[in-house]
């Protein structure tokens, strides 16, 4: 996690991803650091939907070897991963 990067662009990205998760998985309150899988926010099939969102809506190409909990398993992790991929 790159805490130093919580600037305008990163927070906009995070809110966009959060909105997708709230809309798609019908979940309300969850923290940035909450594990999606361990907390039951998203199941493993849901991660596939999340990856599809990253690719189609954010224009990020996710390689197979990047399908890791470190990259995907919390809002903070996804935001950081997407930020890296977008070169922010």
């Amino acid at each position: 996690m790159r805490q130093g990067e919580v600037g305008g662009a990163a927070s906009g990205l995070r809110e966009r991803i959060r909105a997708f998760i709230v809309e798609t998985f019908f979940v309300d309150g969850f923290g940035d650091e909450d594990s999606f899988l361990a907390r039951g926010i998203i199941d493993s099939m849901g991660l596939v939907q999340l990856v599809t969102f990253l690719e189609h809506d954010l224009g990020i190409r996710v390689d197979d070897d990047e399908l890791l909990p470190e990259n995907l398993d919390s809002l903070a992790r996804v935001t950081a991963f997407a930020g890296r991929k977008l070169g922010r």
Binding site: S35, L37, D43, S44, L47, D64, L67
Partner: peptide
């Protein structure tokens, strides 16, 4: 699914 994700599940 990739093993790392299954491990989380």
């Amino acid at each position: 699914q990739p093993a790392a994700i299954l491990a989380e599940v």
